[in-house]
């Protein structure tokens, strides 16, 4: 890939970076909602888990496009190596490295979830905690090196996404999960028995 550059690649990189941030935030908010057992009445608890999983796949796709566009574009000298090995980018070494760390952690979380059944559950869990680090790194990467980082909309996005994930973490720590909540409304046992109506 010698000297291939078009503004559209750079635009794609910026746009998919911002979209990735939004999607990652959604994933980060949905995770704690699974572990604090939200759902069961209007929406199944399993559905929140599924949403968490499938949105993470979509987020990873956008991250992949973000990386691919940046690597292909020779406008900035970021090679394929720098996408996976931190501190190898001649361009904005530290902020790019932070993005790289975010990707590496993301891949670790993704692979361990993909092979979840084959892993010891506590190992999966321990590695899954890294997603918080990955998210913070991604947020910092966008703020530190994003071309749009100092535009008003991106600042609002950064603060919004940061606040949403903080709220999710606080919720996770403080919420009292509906531990022995018992049957959910989806449960056939929870439905009033036929013929037994409230009078």
């Amino acid at each position: 890939m010698i000297g291939f550059t078009t503004p559209y690649l750079w635009y794609s990189s910026r746009a998919t970076g911002a979209v990735s941030l939004c999607l990652l935030t959604l994933v980060m908010v949905l995770g704690p909602l699974v572990s604090t057992r939200v759902g069961g009445r209007r929406i199944g608890r399993f559905a929140i888990n599924e949403l968490h999983r499938s949105l993470s796949m979509v987020a990873m796709l956008f991250v992949a496009i973000h990386v691919t566009a940046t690597v292909i574009d020779t406008y900035v000298p970021i090679g394929i190596l720098s996408a996976f090995v931190p501190f190898t980018s001649p361009y904005r070494r530290l902020p790019v490295a932070i993005g790289t760390v975010a990707i590496d952690l993301m891949i670790a979380v993704w692979l361990t979830s993909y092979f979840k059944e084959k892993l010891r559950p506590d190992l999966w869990r321990a590695i899954h905690w890294l997603s918080y680090g990955s998210f913070v790194a991604a947020l910092a990467h966008g703020y530190l090196t994003g071309t749009d980082a100092h535009t008003r909309w991106y600042l609002i996005l950064t603060v919004g996404c940061g606040a949403a994930s903080m709220a999710a973490i606080v919720w996770r720590i403080t919420a009292r999960p509906e531990r022995a909540g018992g049957r959910t409304a989806l449960s056939p046992l929870d439905a009033p028995a036929p013929g037994r109506r409230k009078s």
């Binding site: 057992r37 069961g40 199944g44 608890r45 399993f46 559905a47 888990n49 531990r179 022995a180 909540g181 018992g182 049957r183 959910t184 989806l186 449960s187 056939p188 046992l189």
Partner: peptide, 15 residues
């Protein structure tokens, strides 16, 4: 006791 199994397989699992 997350209860996901019952939501996903109500014909096999009750709570």
């Amino acid at each position: 006791g997350y209860g996901h199994c019952h939501e996903l397989a109500p014909e096999l699992v009750t709570l």
